Simulated scan of single mutants.
Amino acid sequence: MRKIKCIIVDDEPLAISLLENYVQKISFLELVFSSENPIDALEYIQNNESDLVFLDIQMPELTGINFMKIVGGKQKYILTTAYSEYALEGYEHNIVDYLLKPVSFERFYKSALKAQERFSFNEEKKDSYFFVKSSGQQHRINFDDILYIESIKDYVNIKTSQQEYIVLDTLKSLELQLSGLSFARVHKSFIINLSQIKSLGAKKAVLFSEQEIPIGEMYRENFLNKLK
């Protein structure tokens, strides 16, 4: 597996220095950029390849929460802050872990391992398919064939271009499995394949099958960021 390309954003120089030192000690991490200015970090992300941001929440020019809202799902994040009350809001985004300052190397290393697992998992999914159990049989489903996934009580309905598969699973579980791929949660009951969108309205997406999928208000911003 290639190294995880890391960015550090923190308005405290000593905090940056500490995290830079930690990153250099871990073989599967590669520091590609660090800055006290979140605006500079935004510009770097727009023009360069990176995977993971070690991100402070409380910064004067731009808070970490607003930083994530701007970048969207393009990055994964490990939040670093002295204020634990921001943890819940942070987890609404693409968060791997939450580190409370002062950060020990042991705690940092555990977070790095979580990130490694997340990126390894996503690379495995780049094989372009997975298996699900439906009607007593294992079925191979190509990601490109999926139109949408709908939650139905304790089951999900995986709708492909050929047929449907009723699977005992949760939408949240499948959302995690499809993380990093061309899929987005758009409603409490729906995940859609972004590549299957034919047209987009204020409150619905129309897929190539002419199926209309509602877009929930709480999912709209993250969905639109993924489309970018």
Rank of each mutant, 00 (worst) to 15 (best):
S182W: 09
I45L: 13
Q211I: 14
G216R: 04
E85S: 01
I191F: 06
R2E: 15
D144T: 14
S17C: 06
F108N: 04
D40R: 09
D10W: 05
R118H: 15
F223Q: 05
E92K: 05
Y44A: 08
K25M: 05
F121W: 14
S35Y: 13
D97R: 07
M59K: 13
N157D: 12
P102S: 12
R2G: 14
I152E: 12
L79G: 12
E210Y: 09
K204A: 03
L224P: 00
Y165P: 02
S209M: 07
Y129R: 01
S161W: 00
V9L: 07
K125Q: 08
F130P: 00
K74V: 10
L19C: 05
D145L: 00
Y77C: 14
S135A: 02
I57T: 14
Y77L: 10
I8H: 01
Y91V: 00
P60H: 10
K74Y: 14
Q24E: 09
E36K: 15
L29E: 04
R107S: 07
Y44H: 09
G73P: 11
L227C: 00
E212L: 03
L194M: 11
I78P: 12
F67K: 14
E30D: 08
L147W: 00
M1S: 03
L88Q: 05
Y165W: 04
K74C: 13
Q211H: 09
L18C: 01
K114P: 13
E43G: 11
I146P: 06
M68I: 12
K159M: 02
D127Y: 12
G73A: 10
V156D: 01
L227Y: 09
V206F: 03
S50Q: 08
S161H: 02
S27D: 09
I57D: 12
Y77H: 13
K188F: 11
S199M: 11
N37L: 14
S35I: 11
T170R: 02
S199V: 07
D51T: 07
K114S: 14
V23P: 09
Y91I: 00
N47M: 11
L29V: 07
I95P: 02
L29S: 03
I78G: 15
D154M: 03
I215H: 01
F190T: 09
Q75K: 03
G73R: 05
K101P: 14
V96T: 07
F105L: 10
F208V: 08
L178W: 03
E106T: 14
G90H: 03
E30Q: 14
V156W: 01
D40A: 10
F143L: 11
G136W: 06
I45Q: 12
E36C: 14
Q46E: 13
I7N: 05
E85A: 00
V53D: 11
E36V: 15
F190W: 07
S199L: 03
I39H: 02
F143T: 04
L100A: 13
Q137F: 09
V132E: 06
D127W: 12
E30H: 10
I215N: 00
L176K: 15
S179N: 06
Y98F: 15
R107F: 12
I197C: 02
A184I: 09
R118G: 15
L42N: 10
N94E: 03
S189Y: 03
L194H: 11
F105V: 11
G64M: 05
P38L: 06
